[in-house]
Design a protein around this nucleic acid. Structure first.
Length: 107
DNA sequence: TCCTTGACGGAGA
DNA sequence: ATCTCCGCCAAGG
């Protein structure tokens, strides 16, 4: 075997947490990192999601930044796709922001 | 090995 | 509300 480590990679831990976010709810990058036991590694969450295959089953769109905003330029395709997915499951954006007080996932 | 990037976050001003 | 700085840290050049 080629894998020299038996412990789960940090990415596997992140996938595990993201998979738990229920429909209609959102979590922040920092929150996912924290729940995965990777405190202070919010950026690693973003990096991991950026590397997901196009056809992934993971609800990556339910992860937003701590300001309640989508972490993509507002004029990008990526921004539009994430916004559509969120609205399709009942998460509304007001002036480009999601009310974390109402939609944040609380395990 | 050093330097730069980045789907980030928190504290200040 | 907006902007700047700084801390963290994996990846890639």
């Amino acid at each position: 075997m080629t894998n020299t480590s038996n412990s789960p990679s940090y990415q596997e831990k992140i996938w595990q947490i993201v998979a738990m976010i229920p429909e209609g709810k959102v979590a922040t990058y920092g929150q996912v990192a924290e729940l995965a036991g990777l405190s202070k590694m919010a950026r690693a969450v973003g990096k991991t999601l950026s590397q997901l295959p196009k056809d992934t089953q993971l609800p990556w769109h339910r992860v937003i930044n701590a300001q309640g905003k989508i972490s993509f330029p507002q004029d990008s395709e990526a921004y539009f796709r994430q916004k559509e997915r969120l609205e399709n499951e009942g998460v509304s954006l007001i002036n480009g922001k999601i009310r974390l007080k109402d939609y944040r996932w609380q395990p």
